[in-house]
């Protein structure tokens, strides 16, 4: 049995692992909500050892963590637009379900995403799922299979403005 070198992570990415340890510590204090010395001691011990043992947990995909303010700003904008779209989606579905005739024309459509990172593709697929009238059925390579509730919604995904923001977000890295 080989002993796993715990310090390897620190050598590779010291600022990133410190950031993760501090985030874990903040989360610990938010949940425990008390400041005795026992809580502080346990929190520091646990967050440092978690950071060391959980070698796979990095903020970037591999390697170093770089703070990128522009990327943070764009992702904040993405979240705001996503929330607006979620609220809109609910009213669209409510209008369709509650109308007596139920004006649906459902169907499947294939579209292409040219996003490079796995993470941004998954986020984009999930954004499609919680926004008006569309659900992502399958994601394979650069092709997305989308089910739309009406024809307009299904074809509207092909030129959706959130895609441009996601593209922008990926290029800013």
């Amino acid at each position: 049995m080989r002993i796993y070198p715990l310090w390897k992570r620190l050598k590779r990415d010291l600022p990133g692992s410190m950031l993760i340890a501090v985030l874990l510590l903040i989360f610990w204090f938010l949940i425990s909500a008390s400041l005795d010395w026992q809580h502080i001691f346990t929190g520091i011990l646990l967050s440092i050892s978690l950071t060391l043992f959980w070698d796979q947990l990095t903020i970037d995909e591999h390697g170093k963590t770089i703070v990128n303010w522009r990327q943070l700003k764009i992702s904040f904008r993405y979240l705001i637009f996503l929330f607006v779209e979620i609220v809109k989606a609910n009213f669209v579905v409510a209008a369709i379900v509650l109308s007596p005739k139920m004006p649906i024309s459902p169907g499947l459509i294939v579209l292409k995403v040219t996003l490079k990172k796995d993470l941004s593709r998954v986020l984009y697929a999930n954004s499609i799922t919680i926004t008006p009238g569309t659900i992502t059925v399958d994601l394979e390579g650069d092709r997305l299979l989308v089910h739309g509730m009406t024809k307009d919604h299904a074809f509207g995904v092909r030129s959706w403005y959130m895609y441009d923001i996601m593209k922008d977000l990926e290029e800013s890295a």
Binding site: I86, V87, A89, N90, V93, A94, V97, I104, P106, T129, I130, G133, I135, V137, H147, M149
Partner: peptide, 13 residues
């Protein structure tokens, strides 16, 4: 598929 449209979105909000 259509039923999941209703459940997935309305349950979230």
């Amino acid at each position: 598929y259509n039923r999941l449209h209703a459940l997935g979105k309305c349950d979230t909000l």
